[in-house]
Amino acid sequence: MVDLLFLAAAALCVISACAIVTCKNPVYSVIGMLPFFLGIAGLFVLLEATFLAAMQIMVYGGAILVVFLFVIMLINLRPEEIRDDFSFGRYLGLAALAGVTGGVILSFVRAGVPPDGELERAFAMGIGSREGQEAMSGGVLFGSAESIGLTLFRQYVIPLELVGVLLMVAILGAVILSKKKL
């Protein structure tokens, strides 16, 4: 069952990723990113990382994509303005993609299939539920908001604060760049 769900989510990701790069209309490409992000969120849920899944939908699916769509709609490219050239670079990219994908698959095949049991046990109690998460990691809510919060604020306080400063700088920069008069 977990395998089936994984395949469904993975197929959703791959198909929509292909749609993103092949669509000629940029608005369609952006819309293609939505099922892609939802598929990624599904993969996170299968890994019991429910907090990451919620964040994936909220931040990428909700906020970032809406802004992408906003910008592309306002630019409003006409189809004839979109260049479509079959260049050598495209085939080079295809070859590189095939190489990397092959390498990843090969490395998994060599490493062997991870032992079953854990995920199935968690799934039996309901994916994303507290019981499932507890079963995954012996009482600690792995991948939940609680465990991520505790890790961030205990082990990684200083990097977290630094990221906060970085984001603040970025926000101030954006405000100064966009406002002519302050």
Binding site: T50, F51, A53, A54, M55, M58, G126, G128, S129, R130, Q133, L141, S144, A145
Partner: peptide, 8 residues
């Protein structure tokens, strides 16, 4: 579904 992330 009583999701661990609830309100999020």
């Amino acid at each position: 579904a009583d999701l661990g992330v609830g309100m999020l």
